[in-house]
Design a protein around this nucleic acid. Sequence first.
DNA 1: AAATGAAAAAATCATTAGATTTTTCATTTT
DNA 2: AAAATGAAAAATCTAATGATTTTTTCATTT
Lengths: 201, 201
Amino acid sequence: MNFSGNIGSLGKKWGNAVAHHVGEDIRSLRKTRAMTLAQLAGAAGRSVGWLSQVERGRTTPSVRDLEQLADLLDVNISFFFRSSRRAPEEQGLVLRAADRPTIGSDETGLVEELLSPTLSGSFEMIRSVFAPGASSGDPRKARPTEDGGVLISGALTMWIGETEVHLSPGDSFQFAGAPYAWRNDGSEPAVVIWVVSPPIY
Amino acid sequence: MNFSGNIGSLGKKWGNAVAHHVGEDIRSLRKTRAMTLAQLAGAAGRSVGWLSQVERGRTTPSVRDLEQLADLLDVNISFFFRSSRRAPEEQGLVLRAADRPTIGSDETGLVEELLSPTLSGSFEMIRSVFAPGASSGDPRKARPTEDGGVLISGALTMWIGETEVHLSPGDSFQFAGAPYAWRNDGSEPAVVIWVVSPPIY
DNA sequence: AAATGAAAAAATCATTAGATTTTTCATTTT
DNA sequence: AAAATGAAAAATCTAATGATTTTTTCATTT
C-alpha cells in the first residue's frame, strides 16, 4: 500500500506521511509505557477504534487530541514533528543533529538527547552530557534494562553495582539491570553515547 | 560460591577470575555462532562435559586447547585476554580504550573495534573508522539484526535499503534488517559509534 | 472526514509434553 | 592434584493447544 503522491510545485512527496509517523510514535510510546489502546483511548476520552486508526495513520487526530495524547504519554507535542522538515524517506531512518529532542529527567547537570530516529527499535541511543561538577546523587534503582556507553570526551566517574570506575575518553562500559550513579569531577562536560535496551524514552 | 582469595604482596584479588572470563567469552562466542557444546567440543576433540566445565571456569583448558577453540570460534587467542591487565572487578564491565580488540571484516578502508566489555549482552557497541575514499562496494545482504549509529566525526554517505543519506557529524541512524552500503567521500576518516542487536562479533 | 461501537480477526499468554542441551558427578587418565 | 570422560539428572528450548486479551475492521452516526 502506498498512500504517497506528488503534490506541490517542487514535486515534493507528500501524502499522510506525517500522520503516519506521528501514529507510529504514539504506538511506540504507548507500548513502552505498557498501556493498551483501551487505556490510552479511555484516558484521552476517545474510542479504541479511533486510537487504532490514529496509530496506523488512517485518520488524523485534531491538534487538541494530539496535545492530550502527548500529555498522557509524557512528551512535548513538538516531539512528534522533530523530523518533519526532512525528506520523508529519511524520516524514521535518520535523525539529524539539529533535530534531536531533549528527553528524560530534568536532573540538574545532565542533558540527554535522543539519537534514535525511530522509537520502534529494540534499543535506543542517547547523547548524554554531564556538566562539570554535577552528580547523580544516590544510585538509581536498577531498571530492567541493559545499558552501555562510550565516553566521547571529558572524564566521568561511575558507580555500577558495587564497582567504582574512572572513565577516560574512549573507555566503554556495559551492564544489565544494575543500579548506577555518576559524577563529573572534571572541568569540562563529559559526553557519553549511551545505549539502552529495551528503550524507555 | 566465592572462589576468590587474597594472594600477592599487594593484596590484589585473584583466583580463577581469568579462567572465568575466558569461559564466559567462549560460551558467548559459541552461542552467537549457534553451536552446541557437542558441536564445539566435537570439533575441538574434547568431551561435552569438559567444555561445559571450561565455560563455567571449573576447569582450565590448556593453551593448546584454547588456541584450538579460538580458531574454531574465529577470534585471535589474545581476544580472551584483552582486559586481563585491569582490576578484576572492572573486567566485563568496562573496556579501556587501549584494550579494544579489532574485530570483523578485513574490508579495506574499514577498521572496527569492539567497545562492548562483555560478550554476553543483548547488543554490541563498535567503533568504526571509515578511511577517506573507501567504500563498501555492493550493499551487504541484510542480516537479521538491528543496527544503529552516530557519526562522531568526518562525513559518510550511506545507502540503507532504497534510501541514500549523507551524514554529517552528530547525525544518527537506525534500521532493522535492511541491506546497506557506505562510502566516505570526504578527506578525513569518518568515525561512527555503531550498535548491533543482537550481537554478531 | 472524523468518530463510535460492536463484531471479527489477530496477537498474546499460559500450559504442557517432547526433544534437545547443559550440568553434575563418579570414575579414569595425565 | 587437576584434567578429562561418559552417562545420569536437570534445565532449557520447541511446538502445539486453548483461552484470553488486544487490535483491526467496518457499518453507522456525528
